[in-house]
Design a protein around this nucleic acid. Structure first.
Length: 437
RNA sequence: GCGAUCAUAGCUCAGUUGGUUAGAGCACAAGAUUGUGAAUCUUGGGGUCGCGGGUUCGAAUCCCGUUGGUCGCCCCA
């Protein structure tokens, strides 16, 4: 293979691929606007410290980072959250609350590609700032659901699993674990789905160990699948903190049920989400059948904006990736058929006819119609074939006879009917033919 | 960072125990066909067989290395 290839994990978007990607973006953008979110964008390249501050220095191994010619340590963005926090934090005092923002952007992570994961990918991000109550979660989860239903997916195709990092910590505290032990247990919970009970081995072997009866309590907690179960399990260790969290749980689930979205959402405390900056509800959207990685994920991060050096501002957000979503739509046959058809195809008799047609073509195009014509003079038969293959609805025929009579022949390529119209009425006739039923 | 597996035309693939000038279908282009359509027929362009080295009289084929794809591990914001 001569020449060059794209870099590993990066994709070329040929027109058909590009159109599929645009379909994702279109649905996401439309859903966000319908929910009252405003669109923003930001630089692809950021200071490296923006990410190490948020996630720790270890994160650099996963980043496309380098030193620029001015000696600055920089990184391609691996996610939008720190950037949007910076933007909102910088103008927090001036922005009307609640702040509901979304973006569609490309991100870069220096990792080995595998199914559903590449080095360059697109994400839809939506966040709400300035609202500490569960109303923000309701709004975002509703948006997330619409961002998937907009493709034709249903409650049988995916579900949103709702969990709560704060509640985990409160529960583990009530069971007598200290903070470090609780963190270890949560990372085991995160691995449980993949590894089963082996996930708890490290905790059991740690100093102090993990008593079997406590391990059973943790296991049964992460197997909870409904609000009543959750309330029952927490009843014995009720505290002010825990009952406040349960109030929020009731509000979120009731709000989503009121929206008619109750069947999309389930309680699942097995969802923890890797990095530890989430402070309350966390949620992920999953394919119900199949073994795809998460379609979307998010949660509340009330401390992050302060951590980045701005004032306190509660925040909750989520992201959907284009790679896994695209795979799921492909599996479900929900990828739209690619069509690239002009509205009008002009058939040109020869050089004189071409000259006459070009003026009309330019007018039709200025009016917004998509018009094509052959670059080279071709036999009529060939041109009609080309017109039909182009997928155009109308052919405009500029032949010697028509030119002499001062008319253009309009052929409807669907029903093969033809009629002649005066040259100066071409635009009006095309408009009528294309907008009528 | 680690492991498995694959790589022949734009796509899907064939290519015998190593043996002349590497093939097919689809796609693309031209012609049959200079006033009317998805068919048919004919013809054509397109390959340093991913790349580099080695073995051999001879390599798409065997060996080593390398790059890339796919799948998994680590990680997953």
């Amino acid at each position: 293979m001569a020449g060059f290839q794209s870099l590993p994990g990066f994709r070329d978007f040929y027109p058909e691929d590009f159109s599929r990607r645009q379909h994702l973006f279109r649905v996401w953008r439309q859903s966000a606007r319908a929910h009252g979110f405003e669109e923003y964008d930001a630089p692809v390249l950021e200071p490296l410290e923006l990410y190490t501050t948020k996630s720790g220095d270890e994160i650099e191994g996963q980043l496309f980072s380098f030193q620029d010619k001015g000696g600055r340590n920089v990184s391609l963005r691996p996610e939008m959250t720190p950037t949007v926090c910076r933007m909102v934090g910088a103008r927090a005092g001036a922005l009307k609350r609640p702040i509901k923002w979304f973006s569609i952007a490309e991100f870069y992570r220096y990792e080995r590609a595998q199914k559903g994961r590449l080095r360059a990918f697109n994400q839809f991000n939506a966040d709400i700032f300035g609202e500490a109550g569960p109303e923000a979660e309701i709004e975002l989860i509703a948006l997330l659901i619409q961002c998937l239903c907009g493709f034709g997916l249903t409650k049988d195709d995916f579900s949103v699993r709702l969990s709560d990092r704060d509640l985990w910590f409160f529960y583990l505290e009530a069971l007598g674990f200290n903070d470090a032990q609780a963190r270890g247990l949560l990372s085991a919970v995160d691995r449980y789905e993949k590894m089963g009970e082996d996930a708890f081995k490290a905790c059991a072997e740690a100093p102090g160990g993990l008593a079997p009866e406590l391990k059973d309590k943790v296991l049964s907690f992460l197997k909870i699948r409904s609000l009543p179960e959750l309330e029952a399990v927490l009843a014995p260790c009720a505290s002010e903190k825990i009952s406040a969290r349960l109030d929020d749980w009731r509000k979120v689930l009731a709000g989503l049920a009121a929206m008619g979205l109750g069947e999309f959402v389930g309680v699942d405390l097995g969802v923890v989400r890797g990095l530890a900056y989430y402070t309350g509800f966390v949620f992920e959207a999953f394919d119900r059948k199949g073994d795809l990685r998460a379609l979307a994920g998010g949660g509340r991060y009330n401390d992050l904006i302060r951590k980045l050096g701005y004032s306190d501002l509660p925040a909750v957000g989520f992201a959907i990736g284009d790679v896994t979503t695209g795979l799921l739509l492909e599996q479900r046959g929900l990828t739209p058929v690619y069509v690239s058809a002009p509205d009008v195809y002009a058939v040109l008799g020869g050089p004189a006819e071409r000259a006459a047609a070009l003026g009309d073509i330019r007018q039709l195009r200025a009016a917004g119609w998509r018009v094509d014509y052959p670059f080279k003079d071709l036999a009529f038969g060939k041109q009609f074939k080309a017109a039909a293959e182009s997928g155009a609805k109308l052919a405009l025929i500029y032949g010697g006879d028509e030119l002499a009579k001062g008319v253009v022949k309009i052929r409807d390529l669907t029903d093969r009917s033809e009629r002649e119209v005066p040259r100066h009425q071409v635009l009006a006739s095309v408009r009528t033919a294309l907008s009528g039923p």
